[in-house]
């Protein structure tokens, strides 16, 4: 593949079924963010508010798992457009908090949330069904159950140091490894 060599590495990030905590943790690298800004150009990412891919990216960071059809579509676009795809955080690697709904049938979830909940006021008497809303999946899936994922960085969220260590490795072409204290599932 021929690609015009640019000075900065293009990276893309997104939050699927997540809470943006992993993105916040990325901001938590403090002054190292200046170093990062010299090394990378944020392409499709909430950091720069770009909504679509115009160019191929070297690295894609995925926060969150897949709970609806839009998540799946976004994740597939990331897989298509990114050379290296990284699941960041417990929601992306194992479903995380959104996957707690996997322990309850979807219909029961919707009924509790929109019909029978103790504080619910819903004159329509049915769950939201506007065609604009993405359809929910039967379960919440970790990213690697939907597309091929190259690396997994667990944590809720992964610490700023863990994210920095992983990014440094990826940007220098090294195999990302984590020292013991940085590998966490919580």
């Amino acid at each position: 593949m021929t690609q015009v060599k640019t000075e900065k590495v293009r990276i893309a990030t997104t939050s699927l079924a997540g809470c943006f905590g992993c993105h916040m943790s990325l901001l938590d690298i403090d002054e190292r963010i200046l170093q990062l800004a010299e090394l990378v150009e944020f392409h499709k990412s909430p950091v720069v508010d770009r909504k679509t891919f115009q160019e191929r990216c070297a690295v894609g960071l995925i926060e969150g798992g897949c709970c609806n059809a839009e998540n799946v579509e976004t994740l597939r676009a990331f897989r298509d457009q990114c050379d290296i795809l990284v699941s960041v955080g417990d929601c992306a690697t194992m479903g995380g908090i959104p996957a707690l709904r996997n322990l309850v049938p979807l219909e029961e979830c919707l009924r509790e949330a929109f019909l029978d909940g103790p504080s619910t006021v819903n004159p329509t008497g049915r769950p939201p069904d506007d065609p604009e809303l993405p359809l929910l999946l039967d379960k919440v899936y970790p990213c690697h159950e939907v597309v091929r994922v190259d690396y997994h960085l667990p944590g809720c969220p992964p610490s700023a140091d863990a994210l920095w260590a992983a990014l440094q490795a990826l940007l220098t072409g090294a195999e990302p490894t984590l020292p013991y204290p940085l590998l966490k599932y919580d």
Partner: peptide, 21 residues
């Protein structure tokens, strides 16, 4: 969890069963 850390598991790659317990 500690065994997962020791063995360097970053994500279990088998399909999740999410049993009803």
């Amino acid at each position: 969890q500690a065994m997962g850390y020791r063995l360097g598991i970053t994500a279990p790659l088998h399909p999740y069963l999410h049993p009803d317990r």
